[in-house]
Each structure stands twice: as C-alpha cells, then as structure tokens.
Design a protein around this nucleic acid. Structure first.
Length: 293
DNA sequence: GGTGCACCTGTTAC
DNA sequence: AGTAACAGGTGCA
C-alpha cells in the first residue's frame, strides 16, 4: 500500500470470482447507488477504497483486473457487493406475498445493494439533492479530479475519491466553483465535521439505526433522505428506507400510501412491513418506478 | 408538527 | 428560440 502513490501503472492482478448467487453487475452499478463507475467494452471501471478495478461479468464468474493484490481485491469486491447477504432468499421472501414487489424483482434480477465507503457515499448523496444522475456524476468526478489522487489500471486513469480533509481544505468556495451550487456549503460542512472527528462515520456501522441517523442529521444539508441513503448504502443499516420522489410515487400508486404521509410515518410503515429488508425493497421500487418514467 | 418557499444550475418540456 | 418547469431535498420562517 504505502509506497504506491498511484502515479504509475502498476502491474494489474487478474483473477475470477465464482458467482453462485444472483448478480447483475450492470443493473447494480447503474441503479443510482454509485455515480463514478463507467462501463466500457464490457468492463466496468471504478475505484474501491484506494485501488482501481475493472470488472467483467461472465457466465458463472466475475472477472477482475485490479491494482490491488488478488487477496485484497477479492475481499474488497465481495464486501462491496454484499456477498454475505443471501440475496436470493431476501428476494424470495419479499416476492412471496407481494405481487407488486414480485414484478419489480423479476424485472431486475441480480440488483443488489452495495456496501460503499461511508464518506464517499455521504458526499454523493449530499450532491444528489434536487439534481440528476448525469450532473451528480459530473460533480463527483470533478471533486475526485480536483482533490483526489489518480490511480492507473491498464493505461486507464481513474481517480480516488478525496479524503474529507482534502475536501474540507478546498472549502465551500472550491466546491462551488466545481458546480455544486447550493450543495457546496453542505458538503464543505460535512467534510469539516468528518475530518475534524466531530462525526465518526466508520463508528456508525456499529451503532443502531436510530442513533446513527441522529448523528447524520446533525449535519446541515443532511436530511432524512440523504441520511437514509448513507445508512443503507454504506453503514449496514438495511432497515433504512430512503424516501425520494420515485419511491414516494411507488408507495402511492402501488400501496395506496397517501401523498401527504410524512417521511417519518412512511418510513415506519415500510419498516413495519419489510423490516431489515426495507433497504432492498427501496432499491427495487426506486429502480422500477424510475425506469417506468 | 405542519406548510410554503428559496436555493444553484443543467435538462427537458412546451 | 425563448421560457418555464423540473430534478434522487433541505433549512428556515
């Protein structure tokens, strides 16, 4: 690790991981959980932690090229894809008594939740508010190229997401110049809180949902929805239920939930119904409803 | 606790 | 072409 500054093109490790449960990499990486992965020539390019990865889905395996060692790379990918979740059982249970959900699940087999780096995930969803996926991707890439470090894989240059400290140093002005608009001061504030240790994101993985959410909500610019995204997509709180326009529409149209139901009540309703699988349900509802237009 | 509005700035819809 | 509504929300009166 330490000596690799990512400036030069290190020899890539290549290996395959056998795939024995449902996985659709394209759907998963394109489902709006992450914003900096790109597909090119059948390979998905991205950064996990400090290393670059190219992933290609084959019939019964996942082919991997990475700047990491084989061991470190395999562990990072299996963590990222939540390989420990028995995804097929989750889907079977969800679809069993729910025709709507059964339909959504059948439309997108292999759509998995990811387990992201908490800081990049929080930053991503702070950027996401009242925005759209192309712009979010542009903003995050600009942040990575301005404050992050490059890492090369197979003569392709990718960018690590910068530390909270690096983002904090650039400040709100720096982020505003990158086109974040009113989100700039929110992200700068979050970066400061994280880099100064006022908010210990990693520690939130070991804390109950409600308590972890309270911590996130102390940040200006982080409300219920952004907090739930960080909780589900990076902090192992699968009972979270990010409620955005699309999911709200799905709840209204498919479950008769009144449009004026408060966030708190809709969340309680979803958690009552789906419990620790609420996060997975949200992802299927979001993806399905969004693609319907 | 709820309601209504402003907020940066690309896209998209007429 | 020009203009307005809208976009993975949130803070504040």
């Amino acid at each position: 690790m330490g000596h690799d500054q990512g400036q030069r093109s290190a020899a890539a490790a290549e290996f395959a991981i056998p795939v024995s449960q449902s996985l659709n990499l394209r759907t998963t990486l394109g489902s709006g959980q992450v914003f900096r992965w790109a597909e090119d020539g059948g390979w998905h390019w991205g950064v996990i932690g400090t290393h670059a990865y190219a992933l290609r889905q084959e019939v019964d395996s996942l082919r991997v090229r990475t700047t990491a060692s084989r061991e470190e790379g395999a562990e990072a990918i299996l963590g990222f894809l939540r390989w420990g979740d028995d995804f097929d059982v989750v889907c079977w249970e969800l679809a069993r008594d729910d025709p709507r959900l059964q339909e959504a699940i059948e439309c997108y087999p292999g759509l998995r939740l990811l387990r992201q780096d908490p800081w990049e995930c929080l930053a991503s969803f702070i950027c996401s508010q009242v925005s759209n996926i192309p712009r979010i991707s542009r903003n995050l890439q600009a942040i990575a190229q301005t404050y992050g470090k490059p890492v090369s894989l197979d003569s392709r240059q990718l960018w690590r997401f910068p530390t909270a400290g690096a983002v904090a140093q650039g400040g709100a002005d720096g982020l505003f110049r990158l086109g974040l608009g009113f989100r700039a001061r929110y992200l700068a504030e979050a970066a400061a809180a994280v880099s100064e240790g006022r908010l210990d994101l990693m520690a939130l993985r070991g804390v109950p949902y409600t308590e972890a959410k309270e911590s996130l909500l102390t940040l200006k610019g982080v409300g219920d929805k952004v907090a739930d995204c960080a909780l589900v997509f990076s902090l192992d709180k699968l009972e979270g239920f990010p409620l955005d326009r699309w999911v709200r529409r799905a709840l209204e149209e498919w479950y008769g939930v009144s449009p004026k139901t408060s966030y708190a009540n809709a969340l309680a309703w979803a958690q009552e119904r789906w419990g620790l699988r609420a996060g997975y349900v949200q992802q299927f509802l979001f993806h399905h409803r969004r693609l319907l237009g």
